[in-house]
Design a protein around this nucleic acid. Sequence first.
DNA 1: CGCGCCTGCCTAGGTGCATTAGGCTGCACG
DNA 2: CGTGCAGCCTAATGCACCTAGGCAGGCGCG
Lengths: 187, 187
Amino acid sequence: MPRAGLTAERITAAAADLADARGLDNVTLSALARDFGVKDASLYSHVRGVRDLRTRIALLAAAELADVLGAAVAGRARRDALVAFADTYRAYGLEHPGRYAALQLPLDPEEHADDPGFLRGVELTYGLLRGYGLEEPDATDAARLLRATFHGYVHLEAGGGFGAPRPVRASWERSLEALHRTLENWP
Amino acid sequence: MPRAGLTAERITAAAADLADARGLDNVTLSALARDFGVKDASLYSHVRGVRDLRTRIALLAAAELADVLGAAVAGRARRDALVAFADTYRAYGLEHPGRYAALQLPLDPEEHADDPGFLRGVELTYGLLRGYGLEEPDATDAARLLRATFHGYVHLEAGGGFGAPRPVRASWERSLEALHRTLENWP
DNA sequence: CGCGCCTGCCTAGGTGCATTAGGCTGCACG
DNA sequence: CGTGCAGCCTAATGCACCTAGGCAGGCGCG
């Protein structure tokens, strides 16, 4: 019996790809085991269960997203940074719906609350807002508005929620312009 | 054997309550059957399956939400209407997380795309925007911005996504003020 | 008033997934 | 050249979804 060479990392990577291809709900240990040519039970040596697996996907996605966001905003400020950040965020969410969905599920606070991937994401947002001259508590309010808007767009768009014929990208660009003006002139 | 008096409506209502109490993912035909003191298989006479059941919850929620939103905006315009709409929307989402989650799942377009509950919701949004003097295509852009922001807030808040100590309500109110100004002066 | 029949619930059974317990084996290291 | 353990296995349980087909309680009709 040749060994399949399983590791938690390889399983997580395969799970993330499967999530993007067929949806996070269809990420099942049985399906992964089939992909690896292995029995379901064998995966439990590397992963604690389906919940643990989903958490691992989330952490992977957080790190990836922070990477691309960091690259996008590097050397930019204000409108340029906002647009780069937003476009990158939306593109990641639409190209990786499974990974993105994993990002949204509540993870054990005491366990991963201060995960480096998530922290970097938060830091990038606050950096963006510092460029607009926002300080606490305005920065928190504005950060929440940005996160909500970006996430709302991606989530609704990925779920087919925008039925009107107008291209989403056009509305998106107008919305970003509106957000830019809001940040320039925070109430 | 006394009959339990099952109907699709009673099952849907119980399912919606269960969804709010334990999450949409935990709405299972087995659990509902237990609640009604009936066998799982018996539910299939009234409901086509778990997918059908979820769709029914979504339609129920859409109608309920349209009702409360309609009542909230009645007789109001511009900022008053915006705040009433937004507060009602957020309250519904936070008080009925299971029903709200059901609203987001993609429903068969050819089947329920023009459901009265959803249509009323859309109508209310466009009515709100007409009060701001917005016409196509600005109305669609603005409607998407509003939906995304509201939905993003509710979804993130329900998932425990806002970690900072600042009360969410405070950020919410500032965000609404920002949206009001954006609508008053659409780019 | 009684008889049929349909509706409402049942039993039985098959599938897929998650998870646990415990066993065998080949590869690395002493 | 053993030996130990990591890596994969078999076996078994429980829960959920779903289908097929059976039986009976009460309503509609003659």
